[in-house]
Simulated scan of single mutants.
Amino acid sequence: MSNPAQRATKLFVQTFGTKADDLYQAPGRVNIIGEHTDYNEGLVLPAAINFHTVIAVKHREDDLFRAVTDAFPGQIKQWHFGEEGTVSSNDDWANYLKGVTSAMHTSGLHAKGLDLAIVGNVPLGAGLSSSAALEVAFGTAISYASQLHLSPLAIAQLSQRGESQYMCHDCGIMDQMISALAVEDHALLIDCLELESETVLIPEELSIIVIDPGINRKAFMVQFEQRRKECSIITALLGLDSLRDLSSSYLEQRRDTLSSEQFRRARHIITENARASNVARAFQHNNIARFSQLMAQSHQSLRDDFEVILPEVDILVSMIAEHIGERGGVRMSDGCVIALIEHEFTDNVINLVEQEYTQKTGLEATIHLCSASNGAGRISKLPRK
């Protein structure tokens, strides 16, 4: 199969009858640790992965945007800059694009239109943030084409603002920031309150494996939104601006204010913020055993305090953890399972997942071998046919 850049170039010619001017890309991501902390303005440690959204574009002299994607063949979506209208259920994928131009318009920016063909290999619905890759690739394309000279962080902020305000998805900024700012072979320790980030080299002896366990993704997302609402209620009950401001001592002082369930939810956020920082330090000291312990603690906290781990996912994580011991770390992340393990265990873990997981659960998992990639940017040359 041709790569996304070649496919985007071909789709553009097929759709618009002319060659594209430029190509832009943005990666999907995995979140190594820091689960449910981003929308609570806490710490996260994601890495971009070698699965990308690629957009082929041609500049226009008016303010019209025309978009096509091979994910939904035959659909050409169009709108004028600043005239995105309301969110339409018939324009699911285009809404992410309209959110970006809407955010730019409301921020006082001016951009010319583009014809664009969108192709990607970020698995859809697998918790790898294909939506943020689309937004950031599009924002990057507009910044270059209209000579807006936006920083990667500004593109991430506009992308998140579009999804939050235009689409009314109350999302944190982690996905957009890592897609825009990532550095090859590194994770990024992101402070979601201060919008500051620190590159953290991933130990070279670790392979990154992402496993889609085949669970009901819609049910997972419903549960995700429930936890988000619970955190909002807890924040209000404690009189805080966000749970980022919460300390263990203050939580104990206000214990009678919360139900036992709310107390456990808040405790997860506090401990997970600490774990994100501690994993970054473990990587810097190449301490794989410590990393293994922290990932196990995160998974346990998600299971017992935050109560978002399905039995099938717990089985999968336990299988892998038992096999690798302290030679890597594994936990649930955004509905999938992420494992960073020493290279020599890769084949065994793949076989374990393909054989024993299906036998024990009746579910079929999908395995993605990943590497940490660079963030969004312009592809310097159009590919040859």
Rank of each mutant, 00 (worst) to 15 (best):
M221P: 03
S89F: 10
I215D: 06
L114N: 01
G328H: 10
C192G: 11
Q359I: 09
P152I: 06
L134Y: 06
R265V: 15
V13I: 14
I32G: 09
V13G: 01
N348A: 11
L188W: 02
F220P: 00
I270S: 14
D191M: 15
A94M: 14
R161P: 06
L109F: 15
S151A: 03
G325I: 01
D38A: 06
G99W: 08
A132P: 04
A156T: 09
A289C: 07
A282V: 10
G113H: 02
K385A: 14
E84Q: 13
Q293F: 11
I155R: 13
N3F: 04
Y250M: 14
R281A: 11
P383F: 01
F72W: 14
E135R: 14
R281I: 11
I288L: 12
T361H: 12
V122I: 09
Q160Y: 01
F138H: 01
F72A: 13
Y166K: 04
I233D: 07
G17Y: 12
L382F: 04
R244V: 09
A372L: 03
T271A: 11
R265Q: 03
H268A: 03
I350P: 00
Q223L: 14
G239Y: 08
P4D: 04
H368V: 00
D256P: 06
S259W: 01
V68I: 02
D305G: 04
N348G: 15
E84D: 08
N374T: 08
V136F: 04
V349A: 05
D170I: 09
A117E: 00
L114V: 00
